[in-house]
């Protein structure tokens, strides 16, 4: 069943158009990765989906509802949560407060959910009173993902979750992402580490200069010699 569907999305900043009509979809429970060279519009596509960048023409629908034109907080309400690539935590708030902010829309008692997050990311559980600004890059990334999970989303959008992490930390993050997906959350990833990301993806898209170049299963993209030489670094 199609969960998220973006159709002919055109978007950009000011007078520059970045996306020239991109269509993608994500099925229930799927992991989908978008790869492509820098500046191809991967992050812009994500921002357009979550309402941070206006969709000029085309549409985005989630669970059958057209959400293009919704403000970000309304999109979050539908169960679509997003982790930006940079500045994705509130630095002057503590770890626990960051998670509470992730649960801002919840009216019920979300303490159990915070407990679940601490189980999933034991690093965060050690010092819940620490300011997010003093965390390491990997811990920040985990906190950012945990914050986005506080609302029990149907689908999670992750913009370069492994950027700037050590290989070991990167592995941990990917392991967590897989666990999150196994719990039933659909994932849309943008990744520089295309090999690792495609390896765990059901499907993938290759975006070049604001247009979709290729779409296939993760495995076939990995085995495609053209993709390997152009986008996976040989």
């Amino acid at each position: 069943m199609v969960l998220l569907e973006a159709t002919d999305v055109v978007a950009g900043y000011g007078q520059t158009e970045i996306l020239h009509g991109v269509s993608i979809f994500v099925d229930q429970g799927e992991v989908v990765t978008i790869i492509g060279p820098n500046g191809c519009g991967k992050s812009t596509l994500m921002k357009a989906i979550v309402g941070m960048v206006r969709v000029r023409t085309g549409s985005v629908s989630f669970q059958g509802t057209d959400i293009s034109g919704y403000p970000p907080e309304r999109i979050v309400r539908t169960g679509l949560c997003y982790v930006p690539q940079t500045s994705n935590v509130f630095p002057s708030l503590t770890i626990r407060e960051n998670l509470e902010m992730g649960a801002f829309l919840r009216k019920d008692d979300y303490r159990g959910r915070i407990g679940q997050m601490f189980d999933l990311f034991p690093d965060l559980a050690a010092h819940p009173g620490r300011k997010a600004g003093s965390l390491s890059g990997g811990q920040r990334q985990m906190l950012a993902i945990a914050r986005a999970l506080m609302l029990d989303p149907v689908m999670l959008l992750l913009d370069e979750p492994s950027a700037g992490l050590s290989p070991a930390m990167m592995q941990t993050v990917f392991d967590r992402i897989r666990e999150i997906n196994e719990s039933g959350v659909a994932l849309l990833l943008v990744e520089q580490n295309a090999r690792d990301a495609l390896g765990m993806s059901d499907r993938g898209y290759i975006l070049v200069a604001g247009e979709k170049r290729l779409e296939d299963t993760g495995k076939d993209l990995l085995n495609n010699p053209e993709v390997a030489s152009l986008y996976l670094g040989g």
């Binding site: 979050v76 997003y82 930006p84 829309l105």
Partner: peptide
């Protein structure tokens, strides 16, 4: 701290 993140956090 971060108005954009506040927005996408709901």
């Amino acid at each position: 701290d971060n108005p954009d993140l506040a927005l996408v956090s709901g």
